[in-house]
Design a protein around this nucleic acid. Structure first.
Lengths: 266, 266
DNA sequence: CGATGCTTTGACGAACTTCAACGCGGGTGG
DNA sequence: CCACCCGCGTTGAAGTTCGTCAAAGCATCG
């Protein structure tokens, strides 16, 4: 079913428009790419047909071929352990990259599944190497993005290590909020496409605990939740809870709220 | 005090010997480096004077200049939160890289301190970019190592998310064991240079819990611990505990046991 | 030799998981 | 168009694990 689609040819204008709200944008344009080079990059980026909810982008154990960038929708990555239990390793929103963890083993350590209808761009990894001589900044930018991923992982680590359920959920919500906001969407009202079960799995909590915390936040007047629809009324209180007893790192995963961004890029 | 040392000139033979047990080895030699290129690399790698226990390699917030590789000893990285609490982000053994998380922000998000007397190699990062045209494989290898770091982070994440104290400590010990073994040292008898407090901090547990677990393992006959000296008598039981209710990912951090290495590299 | 910091041990309480049951909403088939 | 059904979410009660508090033992260093 998921046979690789022959890449569609798009116009230059269309391409620019498509990439400008995309994380791959940072992988190319800022390096001062000329139009002909842009066309070159255009050739290697494939647009795949949309994924429907529940469809997999790749399965655990599949050989690594490409990096992917989410263009719309959201994708969950998860690893299945030998005894059949799932560990959610991340949620990926538009403009974020998937597959970075597979480069070293050349095999996907986790599966990626669409939480809703999604569109993605595919960047065949062998082309990145080939393209490197024309666009030396490409790989350099890749290194930067991976560094950010590592940094984000450390923040998440701190969160899971020693934070209460309340703090974790507060941080989780702020993280989502920040990621939506950075994309130009509302940071105070959004759809959480992932289930409570997935959130609990990701945050190291029981489903029931997640549910109870959402209820508590709602009773406190901090937010309103109705199924997947979230409205944050008092983000500052959420922030106060998340930072309660530590740095306000607020996750930082997957292109998220830069863990420590005091350096005012001069 | 910590002024950058002018790099010492070493002989080619000495250099090769020095690098063979080092993670930077993978950054250069496998690419089929000629002797003159090796000399080039030699020029950019600085050996710093040894660090004494408690000395910092870099501080949190310092501007990022170089990657470091541990040659001997062990180094702890940790971030200090606004209210003065520490979060240990990793322990680095010989042959492992430090500083990968600082590339994106160009500033160290955590401090690195020697747990014992250490020697390190310094690889100025601006030289990596410069060198890239001569050694195109260098950056590529860097990407691979970062990918492994991300993968390891995911394994650790799973561990902190939903594992009991017993499972965490078992996994932690196996991880250390594996890393020593891969370096050619004993995987069954080694020195844990980090304090119980640091272990607890890293694993998201109270010091007392760490202590109790070590005592329990000892009572079970799995191992002997006397201060920092560890002898593992029954690694298989340790493994059984760590894998108890999930994949035997056993961490995977910092050049550690490949998270899922079932794929018999054919 | 005393001081200090790290480690260990015990008792207690809080937080979260587990177990169980119910409510709600969306999708499907009649 | 309605009714049923199934999965997801919520809520309550009981149980367990682990963190906190307190105190004592022990190595290292001045």
């Amino acid at each position: 079913m998921s046979a690789a689609q022959p890449h569609k040819v798009v116009s230059l204008a269309e391409f620019k428009a498509a990439c400008q709200s995309c994380s791959l944008f940072q992988l190319c344009l800022p390096m001062g790419i000329a139009d002909n080079e842009l066309a070159l990059l255009d050739k290697i980026i494939r647009r795949r047909r949309p994924l429907k909810r529940g469809e997999h982008l790749y399965q655990q154990g599949h050989s690594f071929q490409s990096l992917y960038a989410v263009r719309s929708g959201s994708i969950k990555t998860y690893a299945t352990t030998e005894d059949g239990r799932e560990q959610v390793t991340g949620f990926h929103l538009p403009g974020e990259l998937l597959g970075l963890d597979a480069i070293c083993t050349e095999r996907h350590g986790c599966a990626a599944v669409a939480l809703e209808t999604c569109t993605v761009c595919e960047l065949p990894y062998d082309q990145v190497d080939r393209l490197n001589e024309f666009l030396p900044g490409l790989q350099q930018q890749l290194v930067r993005m991976m560094s950010r991923e590592i940094l984000g992982g450390q923040a998440l680590l701190a969160l899971l290590g020693k934070r209460s359920a309340e703090e974790r959920l507060a941080a989780y919500l702020l993280n989502l909020s920040g990621r939506f906001q950075r994309r130009g969407l509302s940071g105070t009202e959004f759809i959480m496409s992932m289930s409570r079960t997935d959130i609990g799995n990701y945050m190291g909590l029981a489903v029931e605990t997640v549910s109870r915390m959402f209820t508590r936040f709602q009773e406190m007047g901090i937010l309103s939740v109705r199924r997947k629809h979230v409205v944050v009324h008092q983000p500052e209180r959420l922030r106060a809870i998340a930072c309660q007893s530590g740095g306000c790192t607020v996750l930082g995963r997957a292109g998220a709220a830069l863990p420590q961004t005091e350096t005012k890029n001069g």
